[in-house]
Design a protein around this nucleic acid. Sequence first.
DNA 1: TTATAAACGAGACGGTACGTCGTGTCTTGTA
DNA 2: TACAAGACACGACGTACCGTCTCGTTTATAA
Lengths: 201, 201, 201, 201
Amino acid sequence: MNDDQDPSQRRTSIGAQRNPASQEAILQAATEILAERGPGSFSIEAVAKRAKAGKPTIYRWWPNKAALLLDAYHRQKNPHLHGDTGDLQRDLTRFLMELLAFWRRGGSGAIFRSVIAEAQTDQAACEALAAYLAERRKHLGSQIRAAQAREDVRPGVNPELAAEMLSGFAWIRLLTNRLEISEEEAAEAVKIILDGIRARR
Amino acid sequence: MNDDQDPSQRRTSIGAQRNPASQEAILQAATEILAERGPGSFSIEAVAKRAKAGKPTIYRWWPNKAALLLDAYHRQKNPHLHGDTGDLQRDLTRFLMELLAFWRRGGSGAIFRSVIAEAQTDQAACEALAAYLAERRKHLGSQIRAAQAREDVRPGVNPELAAEMLSGFAWIRLLTNRLEISEEEAAEAVKIILDGIRARR
Amino acid sequence: MNDDQDPSQRRTSIGAQRNPASQEAILQAATEILAERGPGSFSIEAVAKRAKAGKPTIYRWWPNKAALLLDAYHRQKNPHLHGDTGDLQRDLTRFLMELLAFWRRGGSGAIFRSVIAEAQTDQAACEALAAYLAERRKHLGSQIRAAQAREDVRPGVNPELAAEMLSGFAWIRLLTNRLEISEEEAAEAVKIILDGIRARR
Amino acid sequence: MNDDQDPSQRRTSIGAQRNPASQEAILQAATEILAERGPGSFSIEAVAKRAKAGKPTIYRWWPNKAALLLDAYHRQKNPHLHGDTGDLQRDLTRFLMELLAFWRRGGSGAIFRSVIAEAQTDQAACEALAAYLAERRKHLGSQIRAAQAREDVRPGVNPELAAEMLSGFAWIRLLTNRLEISEEEAAEAVKIILDGIRARR
DNA sequence: TTATAAACGAGACGGTACGTCGTGTCTTGTA
DNA sequence: TACAAGACACGACGTACCGTCTCGTTTATAA
């Protein structure tokens, strides 16, 4: 996938246009570094060295570290609520478990943690993250809205707010390094959102 | 607020023991920097300079940046679920709004964002944050458990999981810089946790 | 003498190669600091600040403080035994006086003292100094050897040893801050080496 | 010689007077550090720790690092020109060899190198060193003067200057870490001072 | 006989400098 | 004009010592 090994056949310019091989190698290197050595070892410098790219090439195409991270995160195939089995509890539980599993796998969890961390320092990164989150919230929300349409969800509720609640639970697990979750626990968490905790008398 | 300005009466050692004045000045400086210039400008170097302390003095008492940040965060008076008005919906809504307001106020939100960011990079910081979160989760959870005892909450529910769900919602708002929340929205969020979103037929 | 003051026209990289302007500014700054504030105030940090250079730039090109000092010392025009007036006594006396005068002037004495001091602490510096000294010894020695060739110097003597003797005298004056020397005293010192002190009966 | 091992019987104050055991332990520690780890590892901090003494105790009795070093150097038994065998060449050669051997042995060479290095940085140290050197010069000079009295040395010669010449040779060897010297080389060096290098026709 | 005064160990203090790392900008020569 | 390479100014990192300070303890001497 990356041809870093061959010293004689180095990658170079393909003229006055963006070289996709460089872009690919950079994102690949970023992903690998995150996956292998964790967020603490991630730096533009390290990415450039690993990708055998010049630093300016990176800065030419990504304005800052966060943009590169978000881009790298996007390349990973993000799990969706592809359910609609009719059983909302089961669908959401599966979604939650797949999301955490996705974050555990490869380096995608590390990448996303880095994105969030970077966003706390960098204003632009924060906005990019918020935009990404809004998009995801809308996506998951629309699926809940679909459930609402088929009267699996109460008419009054704000689907995006519910989506945000579920996301928040996932985030807090990611950010405190507690991604392992049993099916029971995931189901229990989903049940809170679906059924609430209030006693009915 | 801080009386560091007096040049003649500088702070010095009080013997072979920790000088509380230094400790205080350092935490104060850390808090002020976060509040005034934001997480991006926070550095041990800046804290030392502002607190008129030597860098080694900081490293002597706090092993890393995250420890200092967490310590500074602890000094802020954290809102609790001091409710028990009998109306759980109202108590939790008030708690949620107070928490976000607390984070908006002063620099405490900036501090906590920095802690979380730091925890993504530094292993030790991550553990410290997880420990702190566990404590908070237990605290909030115990209050939900009390509600369970007086049969306001269903018996099968895991109170700490519910607490984590609420915390996650707050975190995601903090981390994406969306701390402003209306009473209605807060109430709606709490309602999701209390009553769930599932339609009952 | 240095035009570093202009803020808009700062010195920057000239590509993937050493920038001679930086090199020059650094050596200049080092020399000035030694000359103006003495060896005690010399530090890489101070040099970097004065030269408006980054510390890493200094460490990139000079492995340690001593290397920088020796380099700065080399830039000063070192007096040579340019004599050969036929009168060896006069030539050596003049050389000795010029050497001490050279050390008195500007900062070159301070620089060389710093080099020697550094060499006592740092192994690499010691070797560098020894190499430099060997070169100088050989140089001065070869001139004495020339005198030997024209039979001004006894055939049996080791010219480099005599050179070292003269250097040692100069060093001990430098290191104990007694660089002022009268023509008579210099002549007397040289006479010891030329004629010895033993009575002949 | 030092009782650092016994944990229960630590050294403490003996009332309002200087504790000779502390003084001894400090000098001993200083000497050992120089001897074992070299001038680069010498620091007041290290001496205090090794001597199990407090830093103020050191600073109470020695105004600066150089004073401590000089004191430690004085404790070593310095070789003298104890000759007067009638053969000045032999006496001076033996003195020179003993001096270099003395510096090679134990840590005394390292100590003296440190003293000289310190003197290049610290004004007070420089004066102390100059005073010490003057004393030594006078001492060695007076012995040459004695030779002068018995007409082994020419009447016009300044004995102290000759002494300084010999010292300079020794210093330059010490400072460039070339203390090993053969009997022949030493004799040759001494011969330069005794007989000079000028050819006599 | 007691109180004082000074020296002791310990170690924290405000600092300075160290040598390393990463940032984002710049310029080179090559394709 | 994009590229790999890497130098540049900048500034934070965490560490080592500096020389000063105060603590609580110990003990010889003065009152």
